[in-house]
Design a protein around this nucleic acid. Structure first.
Length: 425
RNA sequence: GAGGCCGUAGCUCAAUGGUAGAGCACCGGGCUGUGGCCCCGGGUGUUGCGGGUUCGAGCCCCGUCGGCCUCCCCA
């Protein structure tokens, strides 16, 4: 192979467009009914935006993003996520003065320079949903319900998604837990795995969801994060879980669910899909009450989630899209002209049929009727129109039903009416 | 970024270090105004790429690119 796509970047074949567009349209439909407004943000942002939003753990930006300098030596980054860009937009465009809550959603590709594996590409699509305002737990439940409804909508019978939630506490109480973590783990340092020893310095919360059995044993001995919640955080979480039960949402409280970044507070969640291997979070989200202010905007609490489009499709259908979706790719009508005059006629007839909203393929090649009918068969087309010299003379056209295998010579004037009757039942 | 497995035709996969194959797909014909079924014919290939070992490499070694799996990271 002399030339190939960049690693981790995937082509979308017609079949891929069919299934991804189906999911995107479905999500868009749900979001718009919940009064979320679609927005678009640029694919490139100044690197500084991500440095400031991701904060302390700056090596994430350096190691995991596509960052480069443009011709004027400015550092730019292909967006690795949507939240930072949307916050920048809200501040820059003054959207925060609009009636609260603000409800926005964005659909587009994100870029992360990570090692590709199943369900993890370097270019991948997210459906990103953000809700900003004075956020009571009611809003959070509304949002969780919406996320689950969207994910389950393509196949409501099948329960392929499970919701996990946790609370990280707030600025008042989380530092206390962090202190406790550091001191409690200090004397157990040597039993932690190598990466967790590194995490002690860089990102201690992450030790909670380490996958090594040794670390997990140690973590289970610790006092849980929930013991450190302040009164407000405790009340918030209690009300949240009570409301989730009230509306009948099944969930698992995972006390070891954490986020790597500092701006997350209180409620965080993940929705995991079945059959995805190690990368099984189809949807992840949480509150980021401090982010807008940290980026120089107003003090506006916020929460949101992002659905990974490719993972969503993988959970629903695996590698192969369902047959019903593929049917939409097939044309309804195929025009086969025999001879020069018939081709000329076709140039008028075919667009006319398309104006009537039929999906029409047309062959303008010099091939045998047999060969073209063979193609028609492969296309899966329902009706074939054959126009030859005899038909031209008589002002008729052959309408062939490919499923029944029967054909009929009908008057040209009656063609559209006839197709409507047969295809628009 | 670390480790492991893998890479042969469009696809799925065979081939002790000794002449690269099968099924499906595809192309041509039987059949220049009638599809599917059938029959006949065609292998369509830089064995990912580059080097090395060997009389001889798809197979062994090194490098590289890509895929998958686990870790890292996961905004």
């Amino acid at each position: 192979m002399t030339l190939q796509a960049v690693r981790g970047f995937k082509d979308w074949l017609p079949e891929d467009c069919a299934r991804y567009h189906f999911l995107i349209e479905l999500a868009r439909n749900y979001l718009e009914r919940a009064n979320f407004k679609e927005i678009k943000i640029p694919i490139l942002e100044k690197t500084e935006l991500f440095l400031r939003s991701i904060g302390e753990v700056t090596d994430i930006v350096q190691k995991e993003t596509y960052t480069f300098q443009d011709r004027s030596q400015e550092f730019l980054t292909l967006r690795p996520e949507a939240t930072a860009g949307i916050c920048r937009m809200i501040i820059e465009q003054g959207l925060y003065v609009r009636p609260k809550p603000l409800r926005f959603f964005f659909i587009g590709p994100m870029f992360r320079h990570e090692r590709p594996q199943r369900g993890r590409l370097r270019e991948f699509y997210q459906i990103d949903v953000e809700l900003l305002g004075q956020l009571t737990p009611y809003y959070e439940v509304e949002l969780l319900d919406l996320a689950l409804k969207i994910l389950r909508a393509p196949d409501p019978e099948k329960n392929s998604f499970t919701l996990e939630i946790n609370s990280l506490g707030c600025r008042e109480c989380r530092p206390e837990f962090r202190e406790y973590l550091l001191s409690a783990l200090q004397d157990k340092r040597e039993w932690l795995c190598e990466t967790c020893r590194e995490r002690l310095n860089r990102n201690p919360l992450r030790i909670l969801d380490c996958k090594q059995e040794g670390c997990r044993r140690i973590v289970r001995e610790l006092k849980p994060l929930s013991e450190f919640w302040c009164v407000l955080c405790r009340e918030h979480f209690t009300e949240l879980t009570e409301l989730l039960s009230f509306v009948g949402i099944t969930f698992v409280v995972n006390p070891y669910l954490v986020r790597g970044l500092d701006y997350y507070v209180r409620t965080i969640f993940e929705i995991k899909g079945k059959g995805l291997g190690a990368q099984d979070a189809v949807c992840a989200g949480g509150r980021y009450d401090y982010l807008l202010k940290e980026l120089g905007g107003p003090d506006l609490p916020a929460t949101g989630f992002a659905i990974g489009l490719e993972r969503w499709a993988l959970t629903l259908w695996g590698e192969k899209p369902p047959q019903a979706l593929m049917e939409k790719l097939k044309p309804e009508v195929l025009f086969i002209p025999l001879g020069r005059e018939a081709k000329r006629e076709g140039l008028k007839l075919v667009p006319r049929l398309r104006e009537e909203n039929f999906k029409v393929e047309a062959f303008f090649e010099d091939r045998s009727l047999k060969a073209m009918l063979r193609e028609a068969d492969k296309l899966g087309v329902k009706k074939v129109l054959i126009l030859g010299e005899d038909e031209l003379k008589e002002g008729v056209i052959i309408l062939k039903d490919m499923e029944k295998g029967v054909q009929e010579r009908i008057k040209r004037e009656g063609l559209i009416q006839r197709l409507k009757e047969e295809l628009r039942k």
